[in-house]
């Protein structure tokens, strides 16, 4: 089935099998930052923004996303660069496997105007990190969100 996806502003038209997950289509399009860490939509490493909301792209069929506007951790704008800089200074990434999911989720939170540490923590709770203990990630996001 032919579908269209606009990824980080670039339009892709691809022919996909209906059973194919969005995460696999994105990866095949070269967006390797979108990672698969589980099969139950728990870990959140595959989080992308789809039409303005964070979603787990391993839990969406590519055909469902037909026509959607998608942003991945490959994206660059002022907010994303600020997040990258803050993640680096706060040592918010270790093995890096969850980092794309953390960045896309953080990007959503900052854009939405997250208001408190509690909201940052709840906002990030859909992405598992096994390395950092989370504090440095939370602090990096708080800093960019001006909290």
């Amino acid at each position: 089935m032919k579908i269209a996806l606009r990824v980080n502003g670039v339009l892709h038209e691809v022919d996909v099998e209906p059973r194919k997950l969005l995460v696999h289509v994105l990866r095949e399009l070269g967006y390797k930052s979108v990672r698969v860490g589980c099969d139950t939509a728990t870990c959140g490493a595959c989080t992308v923004l789809m039409d303005g909301r964070p979603v787990k792209s391993c839990n969406v069929l590519a055909v469902q996303a037909d026509g959607a506007e998608i942003y991945t951790a490959d994206y660059s704008d002022e907010v994303m660069e600020k997040l990258r800089d803050a993640f680096k200074r706060h040592h918010a990434a270790q093995c890096g496997f969850c980092t794309s999911g953390m960045l896309t989720t953080a990007y959503y939170l900052v854009r939405r105007g997250v208001k408190s540490e509690e909201e940052v923590v709840e906002g990030l709770s859909g992405v598992l990190c096994r390395c950092t203990g989370y504090q440095n990630i939370v602090n990096a996001v708080k800093e960019v969100a001006g909290l």
């Binding site: 939509a41 959140g44 989080t47 789809m50 909301r53 964070p54 979603v55 787990k56 839990n59 969406v60 989720t105 709840e122 906002g123 709770s125 859909g126």
Partner: peptide, 12 residues
């Protein structure tokens, strides 16, 4: 609503 799943799951 706020106690369902995580933010990503609540998106869809």
């Amino acid at each position: 609503a706020v106690r369902i799943g995580d933010p990503q799951v609540r998106s869809l």
